[in-house]
Amino acid sequence: MATGACISAAAVKAASVVNYENAGTIEFVVSNDFSFYFIEMNTRIQVEHPVTEMVTGIDLIQAQLLIAQGEPFDIEQEKIEIQGHSIECRLNAEDPAHQFRPSPGLITSLRVPGGFGVRMDSAVYAGYEVLPYYDSMVGKLIVHAETRELAIAKMLQALSELEIGGLKTNRAFHLEILNHPDFLEQRIHTKWLETDWK
């Protein structure tokens, strides 16, 4: 079995040993010899749930509501097919010039990207003030395409269309990563930003 399939099987096993009900996320790390290890389980919907939604075609929040309602759950594990590739970029109000420290403020204008397979989940609008008291995440940009290469191209296009006026964000940082040869050739790992970036 491929590593991905093994991890999926372990995830299903982990969820069933605790009689898990409703949405949850199981995190693993994969080492460079492709062995994998459980890190933790998040017993809630994940920030990155749109990625799963895009590649499976399942609306996870609606699924959560239907499960809570006690409706018969008609999604069978075997029938879930992963189609294509999806990428999510978290857009944070932070200042790249100052160690990405939170940079709240008034959004003076907003240009939202769009098109087939481009999704923006956010709660901001032009005239909205990002407050300093809470998380700096202002939204998530998600793309879905047939292959990883096409998804990267789509994300590059979407990010270059995106404009959040009046606010310092990590948009340009995402663009740099997406254009980086290591990212394009999949030479990335959990310490990559610390050790190999630049």
């Binding site: 372990a10 096993k13 982990a14 040993v17 605790v18 009689n19 898990y20 009900e21 409703n22 949405a23 949850g24 790390v29 062995s35 994998f36 290890y37 459980f38 890190i39 933790e40 389980m41 017993t43 809630r44 959560q64 509501l65 809570a68």
Partner: peptide, 30 residues
């Protein structure tokens, strides 16, 4: 809307979750 309180307790407490996974034979990070 989520799992039961007892499951959250079990899995949400990361150290208990590790022990549960070890018992179930799922490989965990050292």
């Amino acid at each position: 809307i989520g799992p039961s309180a007892s499951v959250i307790e079990k899995m949400g407490d990361k150290s208990v979750a590790r022990e549960t996974m070890i018992a179930a034979g799922v490989p965990v990070v050292p």
